[in-house]
């Protein structure tokens, strides 16, 4: 393929329109990405300047470091507690909201309201709810005979508290995505299933769930990526504690880089984060591609 002067001209015009975005992406995404990978092979001074070549040392340290293993485990537990329950809850509420009833929009707005709530605001409110003496949660539990734990003091309950907060924060998004998925299911399919005698739970498992599976899969990826990136609620509620129980991957990057000033070591963890998120998103892209193909 030879380049004519017209080709060059049209490419020049195209690039001129893309230039503002390209410059910003280069400065704040692509170059920093390369720098992160580069930094992960070096030791750094507390200023961030490179001191000595470390080779694969940081990665080897990650392999053997118990703190890193605990952190990955905390991240996995966090995702396990948050993602499936958040999606299931979202689906139940979306089915409830997918009815032709008067004033349904009021309920839709109320239930999806958490999309507008920031993680900092949500975390502060739940901090009060989880408070052992002032919080309503333990009071309600005590009324049904359960002695509520000191949620944020014990490692096992701290991660549960952060997970509950996160489920609440993502609920609005989950409901909106699933509701629009449900609204895309043609009425005739339900009609046909009804004629075949499907009702209630059977209808739900055989028709509803398969029909919204693209939305479910989309949320599975998006919510997992969001959990991998979660920082705010942990910083506000637990600061990674108690005894590192909520020191998830991003929090560990934050502490190692900006409190311990080990930029090289923190960068190697950022590379791990990158690989995890890229892997998940690539799966998503391929899935969507296949779906479009089959239609």
């Amino acid at each position: 393929m030879r380049w004519t002067s017209r080709d060059l001209r049209s490419l020049g015009i195209g690039l001129a329109y893309l230039a503002p975005s390209l410059v910003l992406f280069a400065a704040f995404v692509f170059v920093p990405l390369a720098q992160t990978i580069y930094l992960s092979f070096f030791n750094t001074r507390s200023t961030g300047a490179i001191s000595t070549f470390a080779g694969l040392d940081h990665y080897l340290e990650l392999l053997t470091s118990p703190a890193f293993r605990t952190g990955l485990l905390a991240t996995a537990i966090f995702a396990l507690y948050t993602v499936p329950i958040g999606i299931a809850l979202g689906l139940v509420l979306a089915v409830l909201l997918n009815q032709r009833l008067r004033a349904i929009n009021v309920f839709r707005t109320m239930m999806s309201s958490t999309i507008a709530i920031s993680a900092a605001v949500g975390a502060l409110i739940w901090l009060l709810l989880f408070n052992p003496s002032l919080g309503l949660l333990n009071y309600v539990l005590s009324r049904v005979g359960i002695h509520g734990p000191e949620w944020l003091i014990q490692p096992t309950t701290a991660i549960i508290a952060v997970s509950i907060t996160t489920i609440w924060l993502t609920l609005g998004t989950n409901i909106i995505v699933l509701l629009s998925g449900l609204q895309g299911v043609p009425e005739e399919i339900y009609e046909a299933a009804r004629l075949d005698g499907a009702r209630g739970l059977r209808m739900f498992t055989r028709i509803t769930i398969p029909m919204v599976s693209p939305s479910l899969f989309f949320l599975f990826v998006v919510d997992t990526v969001a959990v991998l990136q979660a920082f705010t609620q942990i910083h506000v509620m637990t600061r990674g504690g108690p005894v590192d129980a909520t020191r998830v991957l991003v929090y560990s990057i934050y502490q190692d880089a900006f409190q311990n000033f080990q930029f090289g070591f923190a960068s190697s963890q950022a590379v791990i984060l990158l690989v995890l998120v890229m892997g998940l998103t690539l799966i998503q892209f391929r899935f969507v591609e296949r779906l479009v193909h089959y239609q």
């Binding site: 080709d7 049209s10 992406f25 990405l33 930094l39 950022a270 890229m278």
Partner: peptide
């Protein structure tokens, strides 16, 4: 223009890069 598809994929690829992974150099 030539390379339009490629540049579009370059744009889309930024969606896969979490901000936290580039936060240190930034």
């Amino acid at each position: 223009f030539r390379g339009r598809q490629l540049l579009f994929f370059l744009f889309l690829s930024t969606l896969m890069i979490p901000w936290e992974a580039t936060i240190i150099p930034n």
